[in-house]
Design a protein around this nucleic acid. Structure first.
Lengths: 170, 170
DNA sequence: TCTTTTAATTAAACAGTTTAAGGGCTGCGC
DNA sequence: GCGCAGCCCTTAAACTGTTTAATTAAAAGA
């Protein structure tokens, strides 16, 4: 139900100042889609012994092995303790290993193990299977546009997210 | 780095059976965008005392007050215990209240309180602010397409998600 | 009436996340 | 050289979100 609303749903606006906000329904749609994606993806990943959220670490490392914990955290958009925990779990699972940097002993560098490297393909296949399922009847162009817009959204939002953190210096 | 890859990144394929999977990079893009969205949204929602994830409950109720706990769970794509917990927390916060159904005592119906109804506008504004921020330089058409595709993705994925649950009857 | 089914809850467990605090190491100024 | 400031990672504590399995309660049906 409700497939026809163009800008209905906003009809209950109380005529206050209103700020004239145009409802685009983006956030719920994005949230829902991402939730579904995560559900399916984690099911696909399960056989590999991976949880959704760990795949990003492996793919990042596959692209550039030996990243630091902090670098991974930043790249994946989580805080350092989260990454420490994730890495610890994945190390226990045998997907990767930590080594102190030879030059700067403060740094912890993270490397894929053989198992980790093996799982790269599994992850890529799971992800692409999921992607294909999700975009079944989409055209190539639609998919490209979609990904482009998604990345733009992320960039826009991250700029703001960081903009809020920075200027705090009373 | 890596802004130019069209279908590079796949170049490391080992020439195995390959299954010919075309990498569209959708899932990471979607995941990242959703994560950023959630971060910004929960910041916007924070003043209302809401956490991201609770907004869906209030909006659903705003659209159709008196839904059952199970109905909410299904609509929002979570399992019943999650909804029980969320509802419990939100009831404690004063946003909604539970009432047993008069006709079928098994059912728990959920209603918005005055506070809950007040927060609807705050949520809508937070969401639309977030949406506008995310889609700053997008055209109307791009946004519409984006939302349409996102919903289609959700539909595609949910169909699969359920398809896996059902046919299990040995 | 008794059994089966359905709805919600509770319990136990775990992933992911955060902030705050701790610890080791670098590097720079003195 | 020494010491202190700062950086990077980790630990600790707390909370949300999530799941499966077991429990309780009520309706529906045989």
């Amino acid at each position: 139900m409700g497939k026809k609303h163009k800008d209905g749903k906003k009809s209950k606006s109380k005529k206050k100042d209103q700020t004239e906000y145009t409802l685009v329904d983006l956030s719920p749609a994005l949230t829902q889609a991402a939730r579904s994606m995560r559900t399916v993806l984690s099911r696909n990943l399960f056989e590999s012994g991976l949880y959704a959220g760990q795949d990003g670490v492996i793919l990042s490392l596959a692209e550039s092995d030996g990243m630091t914990a902090g670098g991974l955290a930043q790249k994946l958009g989580v805080k350092a303790p989260t990454m420490t925990r994730t890495i610890g779990r994945m190390e226990a699972q045998g997907f990767l290993e930590r080594k102190p940097d030879a030059e700067d002993a403060r740094l912890t560098k993270v490397y894929l193990t053989a198992l980790g490297r093996d799982s790269v393909r599994a992850i890529e296949m799971a992800a692409s299977a999921c992607d294909r399922l999700a975009t079944q009847e989409f055209s190539e162009k639609e998919i490209r546009n979609l990904v482009r817009l998604l990345k733009a959204i992320d960039a826009n939002l991250q700029a703001e997210a960081h903009a809020i953190e920075e200027p705090d210096e009373d």
